[in-house]
Each structure stands twice: as structure tokens, then as C-alpha cells.
């Protein structure tokens, strides 16, 4: 039975979960769901490689990579709060990398891009049938690399090279360093750094992924997971049966779906307003509504 929620999209089930793999949990942003799912799919032959947000040239810079081993998938763990153009490698994954069954991890807009590429494959010849499994992340906003640098280096006054983890939660941007420093920046100071496109984004929980996951709704170290499509459901059921994940019904955890729905509603309503405002912005030249 499919559940339909105006803010959380269509899904079969929603659970709170975390990976049972100690190595994956060690470096996971939350419950290690994104990584564990891709590793499982790779080992089961469901995918033969996946696009992840790998390491860029500078500290905490993200750069898309095609990972074809457990080791390479694990290297991409942790949230990097700067843009990683995942879809730019979608075609290449099927070309010089030689993949036939491609996995993709990415934020909500990237899930949209994948579906669009499948539906209308301009410059994406032979791609539609090669997308085997997608795991979407929840996403409130993202930043250009230099913006993230300013937030961490200037506002939080930490050196990026010694940062261990970054996180956006409880109204703040958190920076944890190797030496144990914990610095926070209130989100009202980070808003101006967000990429403008995020202000017209009407998806918070990757409605178009096969499975989508994020931290909000579940306790620390656990993830909220939406199982959305047939492909997603099949992989999730097999992975749980094979002992890859511990799960709890989402109704039994705090803060649960209510908080998630509240944040989703806030994002979507706010961004809907921006879209409305843009309609009348400029002289006889309204900015385009990206959803029209």
C-alpha cells in the first residue's frame, strides 16, 4: 500500500534504521544507510558501481566519483556541505567506466535530474535503462565551496583541514574538529551563503529516489528511511532479511515523523513563496518559475 503525503511524497514504508556494519558506522554521517545500501547492492550484483560524492582537491571539497568497490564507496562517507555535481558523471559511468547497472547517491534535486534524464534522455543516450538504484538524501540547502569555507573558517573560526564532521541540526551549523573543538554558527548567519537555486526547491526528502534517507526524525546515530519504489522495496527487504540493518518503526522513535513533516512544510512553503515573488520580480520580466 502506497502512502501519499503532500510534504513527504509517496512511499511504501518509513522506518528508523542504522547499519549493522561497524566499519560503515564509524564514519557515517548518521546511520550509514546510504553507504550500506550501495555496498549491499554492489555485492549483490544489483549495481556494478555507484556515483558518490567523493573527495575533491581541497579539504572537504566534494567531487563526484564513480565507485566500483566497497572501499571506494566508504571513502565518500559523511556529508559535505558543498555542491557535488553527481549527474555530470552519470553518462561517463556508462562510458569509460563501463557500467551497465549504475547506482546514484545524491540530494533531492539530483534525484529529479536522474528521473528527468531517464524520461527525456537528451545527451543521455542509453542511460534510462542503466539507472539501477538511486538513494536520495534529505536536503534543506547546500552551499558553494567558498561559502562553506567562509562558514567554517570565518564564522566558526575553525581550520577546514582539521574538521572531522559537519552537521546542520537544531537550528545551527555544527563543526567538529579532530582535536575535539565543537563550534556552531546560527543558521540565520548561514542563509546568505546558500546557493540561490535552493530557495526554489520544493523537495525536502528526495521524493524521487528509490529509497531516501536523512537524519531528521530519528535519534542520533540513526537515520530516517523512506522506502519508495518497487526497486527500493525489493532491495530494502532483502538487505534487512540479510541482517544489514537494525530497524525500528518510525512511530516508536523520537522526534519522529512530525518533526520531519514540520521541516518539510517549512521549506516547501517558504520556497513556494519565493517562487511566487519571483513571478513579479524585475521589469516586465518575471524570473522563470522552475516548476511551471
Amino acid at each position: 500500500m502506497m502512502i501519499e503525503d503532500p510534504y513527504l511524497g509517496r512511499y511504501v514504508t518509513c522506518v528508523s534504521a542504522r547499519s549493522t556494519d561497524k566499519e560503515i558506522l564509524k564514519k557515517a554521517q548518521d546511520g550509514g544507510i546510504a553507504t550500506a545500501l550501495m555496498v549491499y547492492a554492489l555485492e549483490q550484483g544489483i549495481i556494478d558501481g555507484t556515483i558518490v560524492a567523493g573527495e575533491g582537491d581541497r579539504p572537504w571539497q566534494s567531487k563526484p566519483a564513480v565507485a566500483m568497490s566497497r572501499e571506494d564507496i566508504l571513502k565518500a562517507q559523511g556529508t559535505k556541505y558543498n555542491i557535488s555535481p553527481q549527474i555530470s558523471w552519470l553518462k561517463e559511468a556508462t562510458r569509460s567506466y563501463g557500467l551497465d547497472k549504475v547506482g546514484i547517491t545524491g540530494v533531492c534535486c539530483q534525484m529529479q535530474a536522474v528521473r528527468k534524464a531517464q524520461l527525456y534522455p537528451i545527451n543521455m543516450r542509453d542511460i534510462p535503462g542503466k539507472v539501477a538504484f538511486t538513494v536520495g538524501l534529505f536536503c534543506m540547502e547546500n552551499f558553494p565551496y567558498k561559502s562553506m569555507q567562509s562558514i567554517v573558517e570565518d564564522h566558526a573560526a575553525q581550520s577546514l583541514s582539521s574538521v572531522k564532521k559537519m552537521e546542520i541540526t537544531k537550528g545551527k551549523f555544527w563543526v567538529y574538529t579532530e582535536r575535539g573543538n565543537v563550534a556552531t554558527v546560527p543558521l540565520k548567519d548561514t542563509h546568505k551563503y546558500e546557493q540561490p537555486g535552493c530557495h526554489v526547491c520544493l523537495d525536502y526528502v528526495s521524493n524521487l529516489g528509490d529509497i531516501s534517507t536523512g537524519s531528521v526524525g530519528s535519534p542520533d546515530g540513526w537515520s530516517t528511511v523512506f522506502i519508495r519504489t518497487k526497486v527500493g522495496n525489493e532491495i530494502w527487504s532483502r538487505a534487512v532479511a540479510d541482517g544489514m540493518f537494525e530497524t525500528k518503526p518510525i512511530e516508536e522513535v523520537k522526534p519522529g515523523l512530525d518533526l520531519l513533516r514540520k521541516l518539510a512544510k517549512e521549506k516547501i512553503d517558504k520556497n513556494q513563496k519565493t517562487i511566487e515573488e519571483r513571478k513579479t520580480f524585475g521589469v516586465n520580466k518575471a524570473l522563470r518559475n522552475p516548476y511551471a
Binding site: G49, V66, M68, R95, S96, G98, L99, D100
Partner: peptide
């Protein structure tokens, strides 16, 4: 622009 992966080589 780029070389191919060893997987791609085998596939070919």
C-alpha cells in the same frame, strides 16, 4: 580526455 577503466576494457 580520459582512459577507460579496467572494467570497461574487459567489457569491450
Amino acid at each position: 580526455y580520459q582512459n577507460v577503466s579496467s572494467r570497461a576494457k574487459q567489457k569491450m
